[in-house]
Design a protein around this nucleic acid. Structure first.
Lengths: 361, 361
DNA sequence: GCCACGCGTGGAAGCGGTTCCATTGACAGC
DNA sequence: GCTGTCAATGGAACCGCTTCCACGCGTGGC
């Protein structure tokens, strides 16, 4: 293991000089610098990052706290982060979070520059207390897909996205629009689903449409769960003509359920997702696109700035634009239902509709 | 920043004693231990990992070298790795690799315990020279989805997988089976595609089936490319009745192309993938399942053993079982083609088959 | 010609742990 | 009662780097 002392000896200089060369200090003569660089070359010397970190009080590492398993979109965001960090000299340490315990554990140990020089917290609502501790510890933090008082963040306007999606369905003529989303009190406190639901509810209300009880269903962020929930919706007498799922993963579950029930998408039921993860293009899912990759890249860039700048970054919230991506899972609702009746006598008759299965054999 | 000296002072002991307590040395009396632990508690002391690492020559970090962007399967494997590491006290550092330069750069700096205590190299054929350097440097290495002389590895039998897939298609009655895979001389030297191709070729040969020129196409591991290549296949006079793609991503591209051409899957063309990534279940893709998550978990487990054991791990190659997952993209070939003729006079006539488009309107 | 000045440099003092070595004191064996 | 042993502990050295301080020496200004 060749150390700085070896290089110094080989070049006939002091260790301090070698260090200065390594750190591009201007206070080294050209001839000395050349000798040192030659010695480094010959000995194939590489500074020990641990020693350097100990000495300088920083460790050339950025931590990314991320619910890696929970959301498909996290991976795409992470890709953006990796892309941004590639050019930097920082290593990326991954802290996976699957439970509040997990989260608090990591956040507690990460309040120190010797663990990570900066922190990117992704999709994870962070307790204000933790955020405050981080702030006072001087470790720069950037939030991605979540917000916090006085901390820079890169976010999506989920409420607006929810509106966008719902408006699209209403514009197509749907009136019976159901929603499948995240539990508002899910363990990690993800809020995106709830915000999207809010956008949905607002838009429905604005249009003067009632959301029947049971039209909004919640469950863990998993395809299979969404599928099960959709089955409930499809079994209703006032079956929705459109389902807005709060994420693409869930929308895929909805698609499965609808098709398994022998119904046609979008002939009988329109389906909307949210995120535009890679699969969605393949599945032909109409969805609200949010720039996942770019959001990761941007957030990582902000963090790099903050870390290098030494001064606290401006705590602005950067909101990335969203857009509707219309593919092939949405269309006008099936024609001619005795809707006026349904509306008038909400819970009345037993009008079974046996012809429902015409979509596919 | 509270240091070990603060704790020692607070507990009225020497720094060495605190260190012994921290490291669970038995040579500390119970009363002293209690005092020290109390002081740690009161001061909320956390050892500086950098200092500890510098002192002990290790850093409680495992490096994962992975072509993060290139393969969808890498993410699933990474999930397995993360899961295995969750229980350990090691941090995970991600080294993304997208080019040979990238790879060599990382591999060169990682030959030291101060960078990572162990290395997991994923899907990345590693130059023997790099492997040798790593071995002599004493950093334990485990390979995942790639092999190397004298290094433990977790692999899939890709050749056998290729056979499995091809046999499945032949068993269904297909004779015109095409293959879409990776370029054998792709920049990073991925070999999985080539091995799968080998399995395909062997099986075809065993069955006495000729692989016409142009029936095997190569291109980057991307859906869009596979789609384009498939268009070539579909335009042929001797259009294949089945396409085996060397990965699910590529198979999805094949599916797109076939459907875009107005053909039915599996009515006109059967499609097989490889990997069984999460999407495939949704897409109903028949594929060869390899346990991606488990492979990551196993490899990470081996690495943890090796790192903790201090002795070089037995360099065994662990081969995980593969299995065929039959879904809805494979079926017997369309009936009644004048096949005997085709076989006999390979390049002869101009027999156009205008009835080809019967699959869908 | 002398003195400040400043550049280039060597070397020591940390950074915060671990570990080895020496010391102390209790206790057992003679 | 003295010595040998051993457990418990304090403290110094060290891990490899950065950085500060001090020093020597050339230079320019008076």
């Amino acid at each position: 293991m060749v150390t700085i002392a070896d290089v110094a000896a080989h070049a006939g200089v002091g260790a301090g000089t070698v260090s200065r060369v390594l750190n591009h200090s201007p206070r080294v003569s050209d001839t000395t610098r050349a000798r040192v660089l030659a010695a480094i070359e010959v000995l194939d010397y590489r500074p020990n990052p641990l020693a350097r970190g100990l000495s300088r009080g920083r460790c050339q590492t950025l931590g990314v706290v991320v619910p890696f398993f929970t959301h498909a979109s996290a991976v795409e965001r992470l890709r953006g982060v990796v892309a941004a960090l590639d050019a930097s000299h920082y290593d990326l340490v991954l802290f996976n979070v699957e439970s509040p315990l997990h989260r608090d554990e990591h956040l507690a140990t990460l309040t120190r520059r010797d663990r990570a020089d900066g922190l990117l917290i992704m999709s994870l609502p962070t307790p204000p207390a933790s955020l405050a501790r981080l702030a006072s510890s001087g470790v720069p933090v950037v939030l991605l897909d979540t917000r916090g008082e006085g901390v820079p963040a890169v976010v999506t306007d989920d409420v607006e996205g929810g509106r966008l999606a719902t408006r699209h369905l209403l514009a197509l003529g749907h009136e019976r629009v159901a929603f499948i989303g995240d539990d508002p009190d899910n363990p990690l406190g993800f809020t995106a689903g709830t915000s999207r639901e809010q956008g949905y509810r607002e838009t429905m209300a604005e249009a003067g449409l009632r959301v029947p009880a049971g039209y909004v269903l919640h469950g863990p962020h998993v395809r299979a769960v969404a599928r099960r929930l959709t089955e409930q919706l499809l079994a209703r007498r006032d079956r929705p003509t459109a389902v807005f799922a709060s994420s693409d993963s869930q929308a895929l579950g909805v698609l499965e359920a609808v098709r398994a029930a022998g119904l046609d998408v979008p002939g009988d039921v329109s389906v909307m997702g949210f995120d535009d993860v890679e699969v969605s293009g393949y599945a032909g899912l109409t969805t609200v696109r949010q720039p996942l990759f770019e959001s990761g890249k941007l957030a990582a860039g902000l963090l790099l700035d903050a870390v290098d700048a030494e001064h606290p970054p401006d705590a602005r919230t950067h909101q990335l634009s969203i857009e509707l991506v219309e593919r092939s899972t949405t269309a006008p609702p099936p024609p001619a239902r005795p809707r006026s009746r349904t509306r008038a006598s909400a819970a009345g008759r037993t009008d079974r509709r046996p012809a429902e299965q015409e979509g596919k054999p």
